[in-house]
Design a protein around this nucleic acid. Structure first.
Lengths: 157, 157
DNA sequence: AGTAATTGGTTTCATAATGCAACTAAAAAT
DNA sequence: ATTTTTAGTTGCATTATGAAACCAATTACT
């Protein structure tokens, strides 16, 4: 659920989750990345309630992650297509999928594969790198509030 | 909210979200990555209700993302520390933060900074690469169900 | 040592979000 | 012309969250 908004938090992650962090939203986007377009596609694939799906899709269109496009010249139906903004969530999806494969393996294998079409094989782990491609080890990475952002409670004193 | 589980879906992303996709969970983990440890730290930083925080932390401990550790030799209090599994969510956090900075900028700037401690500057965009470091363009990336996973509804016919 | 404040909860109740089933109008297929 | 599909909407039951009060144990203060 969600009754309280993250929108006013001074945090880039919170603001992203405000847009795509609701239950179902990321799975809707995942399905779109795997080829779903029509309302019924998402509904049947996810087993989500129709009213909830309507709410999610409407919001995702509002914030610019999907756009509604006519199915064809001569059809009155519309389908939901990811915008550039939506497609740009790919690194998030890849990171989520790879974490799941590593830490929550399923008896029946990965079951979602993310492929490099040129090399024809699974992507290697997505990980921060320096410009030259060198991998940055976790211990060298610091997450901190930006200058000007309010002090965290545990930083007082 | 969340009333229906993703656990049985044949999808790596769904299984990850089943663990960390509930409202608040990723923000709790973010706070931990930024230095929060004590119950009160999370509570005050997030403004989350105590019962909800208790539920989330208990679950996150159960599934191995946090562990409870004595604050010190002579203290009876415990604090919540990320496990290796939890720290391994770093790429997810980085991807979320960078997407937010790009698409949902805040008047007052990024407000969450992720730094390469050696280079002393912000991380460049996390993105899938080939082993040699070459960036893989989005159009070369395919997400698909693995062999054996059930066909997607839009693939029928 | 005795008292006050903090911590980490639990419990209760109101509210908000979701799940489900029934219903509907428009479009498409037969 | 009729049936089926699609994309919803509506209403109700259930579940999750938010807020406040309450509580026992621990820690800090005097």
């Amino acid at each position: 659920m969600k009754a309280k908004s993250y929108a006013e938090m001074q945090c880039s992650i919170a603001r992203t989750l405000e847009h795509v962090g609701s239950w179902w939203s990321l799975l809707i986007i995942r399905d779109a990345m795997m080829g779903a377009r029509r309302f019924k596609d998402f509904e049947k694939s996810l087993g989500i309630a129709k009213n909830t799906l309507t709410n999610r899709l409407t919001k995702l269109v509002d914030i610019g992650i999907f756009e509604k496009v006519a199915v064809s010249e001569n059809s009155a139906f519309e389908e939901y297509v990811l915008t550039k903004q939506g497609r740009d969530l790919a690194p998030v999806m890849i990171a989520l999928a790879q974490w799941g494969d590593k830490w929550v393996p399923h008896e029946q294998g990965p079951s979602t594969e993310i492929i490099d079409a040129d090399a024809g094989r699974k992507l290697s782990r997505i990980w921060p790198r320096r410009q030259d491609g060198e991998i940055i080890p976790l211990r060298k990475i610091r997450m901190k509030r930006a200058k000007g952002a309010p002090k965290k409670v545990w930083e007082e004193a």
